[in-house]
Amino acid sequence: MTEADGAGRRLPPYMRHADASRPLPDDPGAQAYLDADDAPRLRPYQMTGGRTAPVDPTLALEAQVVADGAVIAAPHALRFEHREVVNLAHDPVSVAELGALLHLHLQVVRVLVADLAAAGHLRVLRPQRAAATDPAMIERVIRGLSAIA
């Protein structure tokens, strides 16, 4: 895995907005673009202003995040990388899935999610720690797994 594409293109954040070849996230081609191996890669912490500690360091990998209705209606007020997170979080999605879909380091996703949550644009649903030791919950998992053919 490389951080730059074949042409060695490595775009600083202020260039990303100016890159006309890069489709906006609401473009139908955006997902394919994000999936492509030659998508320009940033150094991860350029997107977080150099911070590696999320505003909320306890944000679990499986925590679910969902975008607020108001920000879904007006995503263009956001910075590009925040907009990408919001666009993937119309329906609830986990922090880990965001990292995978955006090709971002987990810590970067945590910083972005924590920023958006602090601004009220995302709602974070923390996993209930007690669920993993709750017999009723474990029985429910067993029922669900047993149904897999």
Partner: peptide, 13 residues
């Protein structure tokens, strides 16, 4: 949830 947001599943790991 109070609003019209879709309900998030309970994650188990």
């Amino acid at each position: 949830p109070q609003s019209h947001e879709p309900a998030a599943p309970t994650p188990i790991k």
